[in-house]
Design a protein around this nucleic acid. Structure first.
Lengths: 209, 209
DNA sequence: GACGCCATTGTCCACAAGGACAGGTCGCGT
DNA sequence: ACGCGACCTGTCCTTGTGGACAATGGCGTC
């Protein structure tokens, strides 16, 4: 670990404040967002902000003026006692450099701070791996899509039409064949892809889950 | 930094091998993928694998048997001399714990190794922020998904169940209500979201086009 | 030529889905 | 007290879907 940098900690939670004293001898304050301003002007970078259990209606802390104006000049590690993907994405996109669990071991926090202090971003394993899977499944994969490989050319066409919600008759019209034939192709598709119906097929084709 | 762990370095590049000697006194080998097996069996975890400039036609190193079988038990930091997002995603999805530039400062590498050794994932700022932006732009915005806003709480539940392919009866069972009621809720959902059937609903819910 | 795969179509049938009428209770605000 | 919205349930009925029997012709391989 490099030499410890001055660290501003913002949390409304007394337990966390106590717990985090080991991280720094620097100021610990209640969630005083305006304090970001003076902290940055003093030439410091590192901040830990505990998002805590935000009340449902309240506007998130990262929409506050003080956050918006200072995030770029600071390295903010946001912590949440109930982390979820949406919140993580939102806070990172709002300029935070890291997002992790409020009750993570102090050693983990120290590591995260070390990382964001060096200019990198910190995203916990859980959120990150979900991000990766999400992007991986949504990105147009190279070559033939995974689902299409076991299918014949005609089956691919039918499957694609079905996967965007067209009815059997509509597909038959579009391809200039009988509805019966569409059913035959779809039956083959269902078997090959091991799905029960056209909805499952649609989900598979569009890479859901 | 915690106490340095034994580190296996695999690279075909002599310059990199020299440069990375500072990281570890442990073995440095040419790209001998089979070595992963013995390394893991010896009880070690940390590995750096330089992907180098893969020739266009060659099958990526992460498709090899030795990689597939050992990735889960190891913490692999993959480095590339010409990193690109596709490669990064592929290698991370193949079980690597980190991905960064081959010529990154040795201090950065050390930090990355420290992170992956503690069980986390390491993704460099560039790739990570691109990931975030990508996901952010593709994910239906806002805490409440766009489609859910006009719906009542119950309608949301039913819609969600239907959107993952459950039948009306299954939904009824899951929610402890009658199939008839499920239909009623779905009818309302279809009208409010202006979709014709549950398949269109599923596509809308999962943000397809 | 026989065999297999593909594309095509046929009929019959069971069932899920969705629309069109109905109704009912409960809680909340005016 | 009254209206309104959310939630719940009922009975028809039409249509779409998918499975279970089929069959035919083309085309490539052994």
């Amino acid at each position: 670990m490099s030499t410890p940098q001055p660290l501003l900690i913002l949390t409304p939670d007394d337990l966390l404040a106590t717990r985090w004293q080991a991280l720094s001898s620097s100021p610990i304050r209640a969630l005083d967002i305006e304090g970001l301003d003076t902290w940055r002007k003093a030439g410091h970078r590192l901040v830990v902000i505990d998002l805590g259990n935000r009340p449902a209606g309240a506007s998130p802390v990262w929409t506050h003026r003080a956050w918006q104006e200072n995030a770029a000049g600071l390295a903010i590690l946001a912590t949440s006692s109930r982390p979820d993907d949406e919140e993580g994405l939102a806070v990172l996109n709002a300029g935070a450099s890291g997002y992790c669990h409020s009750h993570a071991p102090v050693d983990s926090l120290r590591q995260a701070l070390d990382v964001i202090d060096s200019g990198e971003l910190w995203v916990g394993r859980a959120l990150l791996s979900r991000l990766l899977r999400l992007v991986d499944s949504r990105l147009p994969r190279a070559g033939l899509a995974d689902w299409a490989r076991p299918l014949t050319e005609r089956e691919r066409e039918v499957a694609h039409h079905a996967a965007v919600g067209e009815s059997n008759v509509a597909i038959a019209d579009a391809l200039g064949i009988t509805e019966r034939t569409v059913k035959a192709h779809l039956k083959a598709v269902f078997e090959k892809l091991e799905v029960a119906d056209r909805l499952q097929l649609a989900l598979r084709v569009h890479g859901v889950r």
